[in-house]
Simulated assay, not measured.
Amino acid sequence: MAMICVRLLRHNSITKEAAQVLGIRRFAVAGGKSKKGAKGGGGDAAKASELSKELKSTMVFGANILKDGADPKIMPDSDYPDWLWHLLDKRLPLSELRREGTETLTLDDLRRFVKLDNRARIKENNALRAKN
């Protein structure tokens, strides 16, 4: 009986009802493709990753969030606002701002000092209240 089932499975001539009666399981092939075509696939992914250096230097790939939109082009540095180039500048921590003194700080640094100092005092007060 087992030998007959194996022969039937090899030739794919067994029906669905017969497989249920015999308790044979069949698994679907991923993507509906046969195993022969599955090996070595992904040719589209290789083509997409081989973008020319010229395109990589003129476009920001992956920045498009719109369905019908296109990736933005990289503009010259003069077309961007000045504040953009200072976003990643390191700023002084609260301890350094305290050492400098409030008289010598710029207006932006003074505002930042007040904000950080208030935040530190609130955390300290909350820690004291939690212990009691």
Score class of each variant (00 low, 15 high):
Leu110Asn: 13
Lys115Ser: 12
Asp117Phe: 05
Leu110Lys: 07
Glu103Tyr: 00
Leu92Cys: 11
Arg91Ser: 09
Trp83Arg: 15
Asp108Glu: 13
Glu96Trp: 14
Leu94Val: 13
Thr106Tyr: 02
Asp108His: 11
Asp109His: 06
Arg98Cys: 12
Val114Gln: 09
Arg119Thr: 07
Phe113Glu: 02
Lys90His: 10
Arg119Cys: 06
Asp109Arg: 15
Leu84Thr: 13
Asp117Cys: 00
Phe113Ser: 07
Asp117Trp: 08
Leu94Pro: 03
Asp109Asn: 07
Lys90Met: 11
Leu92Glu: 12
Val114Ile: 11
Leu107Glu: 11
Asn118Thr: 06
Leu107Thr: 09
Leu110Trp: 12
Asp82Pro: 05
His86Asp: 12
Leu92Trp: 15
Asp117Gly: 02
Trp85Gly: 06
Leu116Trp: 01
Asp109Trp: 10
Lys90Ala: 11
Leu97Phe: 11
Glu103Ser: 09
Asn118Val: 11
Leu84Pro: 04
Glu96Val: 10
Phe113Gly: 02
Asp89Glu: 02
Val114Phe: 06
Asp108Gly: 13
Leu105Arg: 15
Lys115Cys: 09
His86Ile: 08
Leu94Cys: 06
Pro93Phe: 00
Leu105Gly: 11
Asp82Thr: 14
Asp89Lys: 09
Thr106Lys: 11
Asp89His: 05
Arg112Pro: 00
Arg119His: 02
Glu96Cys: 01
Leu97Ser: 15
Trp83Asp: 01
Leu116Met: 05
Asp89Gln: 03
Thr106Ala: 07
Leu116Glu: 00
Arg119Asp: 00
Trp85Glu: 06
Thr104Cys: 03
Arg111Thr: 04
Lys115Asn: 06
Leu116Arg: 04
Leu107Asp: 07
Ser95Thr: 14
Gly101Ser: 12
Thr102Asn: 12
Arg99Phe: 13
Gly101Ala: 05
Glu103Val: 10
Trp85Lys: 14
Arg112Gly: 07
Asp82Asn: 05
Phe113Met: 01
Leu84Asn: 00
Asp117Leu: 03
Leu116Val: 04
Glu96Lys: 10
Leu87Arg: 00
Lys90Arg: 14
Glu100His: 03
Gly101Asn: 11
Thr102Pro: 03
Arg98His: 07
Trp85Arg: 10
Glu103Asp: 12
Glu103Pro: 01
Lys90Glu: 03
Phe113Asn: 01
Leu88Asn: 10
Arg98Lys: 09
Asp82Lys: 15
Arg111Asn: 05
Asp109Gln: 15
Thr104Pro: 00
Asp82Met: 13
Arg111Lys: 12
Thr102Ser: 08
Arg112Cys: 13
Pro93Met: 03
Pro93Gln: 08
Leu110Gln: 06
Arg112Gln: 08
Glu103Arg: 07
Thr106Trp: 04
Glu103Gly: 10
Leu97Cys: 09
Leu94Asp: 04
Lys90Pro: 02
Asn118Ala: 10
Arg98Trp: 02
Pro93Ser: 10
Leu88Gln: 08
Phe113Asp: 03
Glu100Val: 05
Arg111Gly: 05
Asp117His: 04
Arg91Lys: 14
Leu105Glu: 03
Trp85Ala: 07
Leu94Met: 08
Thr106Phe: 04
